[in-house]
Design a protein around this nucleic acid. Structure first.
Lengths: 231, 231
DNA sequence: AGCCTAGTTTGTACGTCGTACAAATTTCTG
DNA sequence: CAGAAATTTGTACGACGTACAAACTAGGCT
């Protein structure tokens, strides 16, 4: 009946951009984890109807891709290729920085692992890695393979670490997580698993910075010695 | 119309169990990928209302946890501890078998990486790994750390490989995936990325069995040599 | 100036998901 | 053979992603 005109809202306010959408998405990721990064949540955060997002991105997947690229853009490429520092130190700094960043955004890794990582920032990072491994004395082909192993180790580590939190809220401190794991392992260890029982305290520390560096060092050892043992 | 009593359906048919539910879930995972593993899909597959699943599992997360445990139960623990074979060969067989399994269930890795992997089968596998690294001559603490690095590399590799398909349907053969990647890399490579351009064919092969073994060999090299280089 | 057009935003709607609740039914226990 | 316990269902709610057309605003053309 009749015309209830004057609906009041629609129309371009002009103030909205893909960057604001990514800001909102990144804030959601930091505050509440990956599962709270939602089109409707993003829209609410910027004070807009959900559909408005589709003006700037064709879908949720595109938003996530762009967010991954943004996260990759924050890595320190200059430090990575600074030849005044030994190559090992440069790689370790990069890895540690990356790990800290990603652990502080619970759920960001699952984002990284959910796409192809073929954006411009990903390619740029890959190029720098090739450079560093060339500095380490590797032939181009070996440098390429080594850089992929490096990426695999770093992302795999972080993925395994975040696997056990990521469910709700901000991450507890390292000590606390270790304690929780220790309880779990000692409970699971039995006569049937003597070695697990014997090294439970070590295994509880799988998720620490110390273990991350230990493994990284060994991986780099393996990557930069010519020839391989046949045993 | 009157009373259409005889609504006909509710009541226990007796024929339903947690195992059938996991069967259905696993079939869905194989056929359509991780995103098709859904409570409603599982229920439809066993010919039952969605809520029936909640009689056997408290929620979707529990179903996925149990499914992960089931996937872990298929690994060949006996072969892993068979001392008639050299330890490197045992680890490599395990890694390759695991990789083949997980690549054939697109999306299974994201499942593995979405929980703590603390079920009985996971613990049993961990115990065997400790045994193998002891065979390789490592002290208990180093064996524990090494086994975690091993797991990290294997799961990380598979995660990176599945990252770029996982979106719809059955995985294309290795050659085809390599070709697709090559196109992408040569397109992305420019004057600003000379090393990327030079090794594009190698990088396109990051997702092959060959690269997987190459990296695994290097990682094991690094894990089983005492001491570490300081650069 | 004023209109037209293109671009932006919204309301509404559809189909999907996980899952809570109580009613209906069957099987088991005594 | 009755009652208790376990199982399954219908229905429903609140989220989600996203399609569609209507409402609106801003800028370019005359």
């Amino acid at each position: 009946m009749a015309q209830m005109s004057q609906r009041r809202r629609p129309g371009p306010r002009g103030t909205l951009s893909d960057q604001m959408i990514l800001d909102a998405a990144q804030n959601l990721l930091s505050d509440g984890g990956a599962r709270t990064v939602t089109i409707r949540g993003i829209a609410a955060r910027v004070g807009v109807a959900p559909n408005a997002v589709y003006t700037y991105f064709p879908g949720k997947a595109a938003v996530l891709r762009a967010l991954v690229e943004r996260l990759l853009s924050t890595v320190d490429l200059a430090g990575l290729t600074n030849r005044t520092r030994p190559w090992r130190q440069r790689l370790q700094s990069l890895a540690l920085e990356f790990r800290t960043d990603l652990l502080s955004h619970p759920g960001a890794v699952s984002l990284l692992l959910s796409g192809r990582m073929d954006g411009p920032n990903a390619v740029a990072l890959g190029e720098r890695l090739l450079e560093v491994f060339a500095d380490a004395g590797l032939e181009p082909v070996d440098a390429a393979r080594a850089s992929h192993v490096f990426v695999t180790y770093v992302l795999g580590s972080i993925a395994l670490e975040t696997a056990e939190l990521e469910h709700s809220g901000p991450p507890p401190p390292e000590d606390e997580r270790v304690a929780t794991r220790l309880v779990g392992f000692t409970a699971a260890a039995s006569d049937r698993h003597p070695r697990t029982a014997a090294t439970a305290t070590t295994m509880a520390r799988y998720i620490t910075t110390e273990q991350f560096i230990w493994g990284l060092t060994r991986v780099l050892d393996g990557l930069t010695r010519q020839g391989s043992a046949a045993d």
